[in-house]
């Protein structure tokens, strides 16, 4: 029988050791991506189109597709998600239907993204005839992201002090006016930082896009900004391979001799972007909080 003190020391050492190991692994992970990838990053790499067989291809169209898809997705997701979040937080009565919606949101948030992709293939690509397109991809990502957006909005609104809401109602404001002009501004820091984190998730998602936005890009003409032209980058009904899908594709079927370097470079771009989203979310959340509460 060991003394409790000895056991305590051993346990503490083990915990610190494990935590250290985790930190090492995570640091190694980030370091690996950065070291492998940063060397390959250049303006040319970020802007030029990929090569299928020769070396020296870039990720220009993929990067553009990822960003454009992100914007499209958020344009659809944010109003829908905030609307549904407001409903859940302010309008939903405590009854069976509300419980059912809560269950739906929970199920939807844990749906495997590949299944969302399959559904997108069936409904959006085939039934609605969108084909492999940015629009189909954006709608699939909306399905994938909506539950998160709802939860963020709900959290934000629940954080508003009850007295604020009551003060607005007591002035004779309608419920809707109270929500939009008193409660939402207070909830905004939480909603904005949550939305940016959700955007990071959209940026890195691949499985839901394989069968919706497609695995190829047409040759794009970056001088043609007419959204209706098939070679225009802005056309939302063209197929679009995103950065994350590109990484997957060159790893599983890449023929270019420098496929690994390209994958490393593209991974570094993804990770740096996610990092930026995180930092911006934190900073903006804090900044807005200070601005709205006018405290230091």
């Amino acid at each position: 029988m060991m003394k409790p003190k000895t056991v305590d020391k051993i346990a503490t050492a083990v915990i610190i050791g494990v935590a250290g190991l985790i930190v090492l692994v995570l640091a190694g992970l980030l370091g690996f991506i950065m070291v492998r990838g940063l060397g390959h990053l250049s303006f040319d790499f970020l802007t030029s189109p990929p090569q299928s067989i020769r070396a020296g291809g870039g990720i220009g169209p993929q990067l553009f597709n990822s960003l454009f898809l992100l914007v499209l997705t958020m344009i659809i997701t944010v109003p829908l998600g905030i609307g549904a979040g407001i409903y859940m937080s302010e309008y939903a009565k405590a009854n069976k239907f509300t419980d059912f919606i809560r269950l739906v949101v929970e199920v939807l948030s844990s749906f495997p993204s590949i299944v969302v992709g399959l559904f997108g293939l069936l409904m959006l690509v085939n039934y609605f005839g969108l084909g492999f397109s940015l629009m189909a991809g954006a709608l699939a990502l909306t399905i994938f992201n909506l539950p998160l957006m709802v939860r963020i909005t709900e959290q934000g609104l629940k954080s508003v002090p009850r007295e604020q809401k009551e003060a607005a109602l007591a002035l004779g404001l309608t419920k809707w006016k109270t929500i939009t002009s008193i409660m939402l501004p207070i909830a905004l820091p939480i909603i904005v930082s949550g939305t940016i984190l959700a955007a990071g998730r959209v940026f890195g998602e691949a499985a839901a896009l394989l069968f919706t936005a497609g695995m190829s890009s047409p040759r794009l003409d970056f001088t043609d900004w007419n959204p209706l032209s098939p070679v225009s980058p802005l056309n939302p009904f063209r197929p679009a391979e995103t950065l994350a899908v590109h990484i997957w594709k060159i790893n599983s079927e890449g023929l270019a001799p420098d496929a690994t370097e390209i994958a490393a470079g593209a991974s570094a771009v993804l990770v740096i972007t996610v990092l930026l989203f995180n930092l911006v979310a934190r900073w903006l959340g804090r900044f807005m909080y200070r601005k709205f509460t006018a405290t230091k």
């Binding site: 890195g204 994350a244 790893n251 996610v274």
Partner: peptide
């Protein structure tokens, strides 16, 4: 932050 890293990146690291 690590929770936000895309899964393809994890796959790529696994592969390499």
């Amino acid at each position: 932050l690590l929770a936000g890293i895309p899964s393809v990146v994890y796959g790529f690291i696994g592969l390499s």
